[in-house]
Amino acid sequence: MLADQALALFDGQLKSQNRSEHTVIAYHNDIAQFLNYLGQEKSCDPGEISLEEISVEWVRSFLGDLTDQGLERKSMARKLAALRSFSKLMCKEGYLDHNPVQRISSPKLGKKLPDFLYLEQMEKLLKTPDCATVLGARDQVVLELLYGSGLRVSELAGLNQEDVDQDQMLLRVRGKGKKERIVPMTEYALKAIQVYLDMREHSQRPLLLNYQGSRLSVRSIRRILDKLALEAGLPQHIHPHMLRHSFATHLLDGGADLRSVQELLGHAKLSSTQIYTHLTREHLRQVYDETHPHAKSN
């Protein structure tokens, strides 16, 4: 079978699997790019290439060329996944007797370090809401719980008044998979909650309400952070998870052990928490460079 016929067959297979139009187009373009590369190397029309000409050596050569062009590993991994699916289908249909991509490992994707706020930035943000108004008092609660207890934005939006144990300064939080955990809150958070509830006219169960008296949504919390960051004069876009990242980073910088931070964040695996050690290592390096007399040569 010729390559252009195989590509049409592959497109039909993806569509029959109810893949999104974006996925079908992306995979089609990835295979077409490989075939164009092969055609250029063989000095022939890509559509005239026979499937039998596709080999592990040519796939590796193609990936090597992409590396030389500076393509990100994430994009390379997707192209390899497209080639793997394409070859698997051709084997299944009997047009290839072996999968030339099977022996090629996907490139390892480096974990992106999470964005976080430095302590001075966080303190500036915490001082921004106007707590003399009910909405400002509510926004203060948003900041204190996202940062002070490391909540996910969905966990914050889902809090009810009965989830707050003011005597023990604890929160009952429903995390991923509706798993419940108990997390502490700061004195600042407790005071903010008390001020807000005293000013509020509505008695509904949700802890946080919008101006209409309904539960505050995740989208609204994101908009609140955008507004507060602008008012605080912070240079970067602030999203809710940045405050959760800041919570974890500042705890580890302060000497908290990794297991405790894992429990507080509600991570099922310790590996999910370990990414923050990269951030604290950067902090330690900075402290070391700035304070040790032999850290840097003059």
Rank of each mutant, 00 (worst) to 15 (best):
Q204I: 12
E72Y: 08
L145V: 08
I275A: 09
L14I: 01
L119T: 10
D165C: 08
E162A: 05
D198Y: 04
S272D: 12
L126N: 06
G175S: 07
S271G: 08
S149H: 05
K191N: 13
L225G: 08
L80R: 01
L9V: 02
A157R: 02
D30I: 04
E57W: 04
H98I: 05
D115E: 14
S61A: 03
M185R: 03
G233E: 11
M122K: 00
A268H: 11
T273N: 00
G64F: 00
A8C: 01
V141Q: 12
S50V: 03
K42E: 03
K296Q: 15
F116T: 02
L117E: 06
D4Y: 00
R103W: 05
I25A: 14
L228H: 01
P235S: 15
T280N: 13
E21V: 14
I221T: 07
S271I: 11
M76G: 12
G177A: 10
K15H: 07
F86N: 01
I182C: 03
K179W: 10
R244E: 11
A32G: 00
Q161A: 02
T133S: 15
I25P: 00
L145Q: 05
D165K: 01
A248T: 08
K112F: 03
P129M: 06
V164H: 09
L145N: 03
D198S: 12
E282K: 15
L14G: 05
L207Q: 11
E93S: 12
A268C: 10
G266D: 05
M76Q: 15
L234S: 11
E72T: 06
F34Q: 00
A229H: 06
E155M: 04
S55F: 00
S272Y: 09
S246R: 04
L284M: 14
D257V: 05
L234W: 10
I25K: 09
R19K: 13
Q121H: 12
K179Q: 14
D68I: 05
C91M: 15
F34P: 03
H202A: 14
D68E: 13
R19L: 12
R78T: 08
L7H: 04
H267G: 13
Y288N: 10
K296C: 07
L171C: 07
D198M: 06
P206H: 09
H237D: 13
E263K: 10
L209M: 13
Q69D: 08
D139F: 09
R223D: 12
E120R: 05
T133Y: 04
Q121W: 07
F34H: 00
S214C: 09
Y211S: 14
D167R: 10
L243H: 07
T277S: 08
I25S: 11
P100L: 01
Q17G: 04
C91V: 14
D4R: 00
Q140P: 06
N29Y: 02
R84C: 07
L265E: 11
V142T: 11
E290D: 14
A256N: 03
L109H: 10
A192F: 11
R285N: 15
L135P: 00
T186S: 15
Q40F: 02
G177K: 07
L2C: 00
M199P: 07
L109M: 14
D130L: 04
Q13C: 02
S260W: 01
M169Q: 15
A82R: 01
F116Q: 08
